[in-house]
């Protein structure tokens, strides 16, 4: 049924945004310089807003209310890719993850803005404008640090090699892939992945970083259907701590 296929798609988008938003917020107060502290904190706020837009749409389609959905599920009920739940690590890893993720996300929103589903198209049209700033930020920093010093280049290269198999997991095909493509909801994961490779390659070519041979990598799948690393549950416990003590609390 198309409705279930759409819900599956919306959950993975919303969950990615929520979890990466939370991870980004962990840089608040710890950024390597003030501008980056502000950038990751701002992107955290944007991503939470984006997840809310999709959880609200899911709620209109009969799912639970956004707070309950965000705070009351366990790790195995989350549809995010494993990439976004990994700990923030050092700044080089967070920057590379942000670069790989947001270049994928903007393509997803561009595709969804052409969706035959009007509600989804309206939200995607709005949000892709905001994500442009995230992509601008990531690409600028990767270009600068990817051509700066030996240390910055080798750190980014290592993080790129570590993160890439997880990033390929963003494009884990859904059970409903063909149904969504046939209905014109979006262009599908395989098409997005190809476009994404072109975009990130174009940026990396302007640096001293080398994109590993994708065909030799094993994508990390499973996140879209509830298989997660040991890092997700502690994140959820921390995120929902106040809500679980007092669901009516305002903060």
């Amino acid at each position: 049924m198309l409705e279930n296929a759409i819900k599956d798609l919306l959950y993975k988008i919303a969950d990615d945004q929520l979890i990466l938003g939370h991870r980004n917020s962990e840089w608040t107060g710890f950024g390597p310089m003030l501008e980056e502290d502000i950038a990751f904190s701002s992107m955290a706020q944007d991503k939470l807003g984006h997840s809310l837009a999709f959880y609200t749409l899911l709620h209109q389609m009969g799912e639970g209310d956004p707070d309950t959905v965000a705070f009351m599920r366990n790790a195995d009920q989350f549809h995010n890719s494993q990439l976004v739940e990994l700990p923030i690590g050092e700044y080089d890893f967070s920057l590379i993850r942000h670069f790989l993720y947001d270049n994928a996300e903007i393509l997803r929103f561009e595709s969804l803005s052409q969706s035959t589903n009007e509600e989804i198209a309206k939200i995607a049209t709005k949000l892709k404008g905001e994500v442009r700033y995230h992509v601008l930020h990531a690409n600028t920093l990767v270009k600068q640090l990817g051509s700066a010093t030996q240390e910055s280049i080798s750190r980014l290269q290592q993080s790129l090699e570590y993160a890439l198999p997880f990033a390929l997991g963003i494009f884990e095909p859904s059970k409903h892939e063909q149904e969504l493509i046939d209905a014109g909801i979006y262009s599908g994961e395989a098409a997005l992945q190809n476009q994404w490779l072109e975009r990130i390659s174009a940026v990396l070519e302007k640096t001293h970083l080398k994109l590993p041979e994708i065909a030799n990598l094993q994508p990390v799948y499973g996140g879209r259907y509830g298989q997660h690393t040991e890092h997700l549950q502690p994140l959820l416990d921390e995120m929902a701590e106040v809500f679980k003590i007092d669901p009516t609390a305002e903060w």
Binding site: E35, I38, A39, S41, S42, Q45, D46, Y133, L136, H137
Partner: peptide, 13 residues
């Protein structure tokens, strides 16, 4: 442009 982010979501520096 120094950074596309600022003290609120709608501002750049």
């Amino acid at each position: 442009m120094r950074t596309p982010f600022g003290p609120t979501l709608c501002r750049s520096m």
